[in-house]
Computed example of a mutant assay.
Amino acid sequence: MSLLTDENKRQIGELLERMDEPVTIHTFTDDCETCEECLEFNREMAETSELLSVEEHEFDGEAAEEYGATKYDHGPVQVLEGGDVSGVNYFGLPTGQEINSYITDIVELSTGDPDLSVDLIEAVQEIDEPVEITVFVTPTCPHCPGAVQTAHRFAMVNEHVTGEMIQSQEFMEVAQEYGVRGVPQINVNGSDGEFTGNLPPQQFLSEVKNAL
Rank of each mutant, 00 (worst) to 15 (best):
L3A: 03
L3V: 06
T5C: 02
G13F: 10
G13S: 04
E17M: 12
R18A: 14
P22G: 09
T29Q: 05
E33N: 12
C35V: 00
L39H: 06
A46L: 10
E47K: 02
L52G: 10
S53C: 07
E55Q: 15
E56C: 02
H57K: 06
H57E: 01
D60C: 06
E62S: 11
A64T: 13
A64E: 10
Y72I: 04
P76I: 04
L80N: 05
G82C: 09
G82H: 08
G83R: 09
G92E: 04
G92L: 01
P94Q: 08
G96N: 07
Q97L: 10
Y102W: 15
V107R: 12
E108W: 09
T111N: 03
L116A: 03
D119M: 10
E122G: 09
A123D: 15
E129G: 02
P130C: 01
T138S: 03
G146F: 05
A147T: 07
V148K: 03
N158Y: 00
N158W: 00
G163H: 09
Q167N: 15
E170T: 00
A175C: 02
E177T: 11
Y178T: 04
V180G: 00
R181L: 13
P184T: 06
V188K: 03
V188P: 01
G197W: 02
N198H: 07
P201A: 00
A211I: 01
A211H: 00
A211F: 05
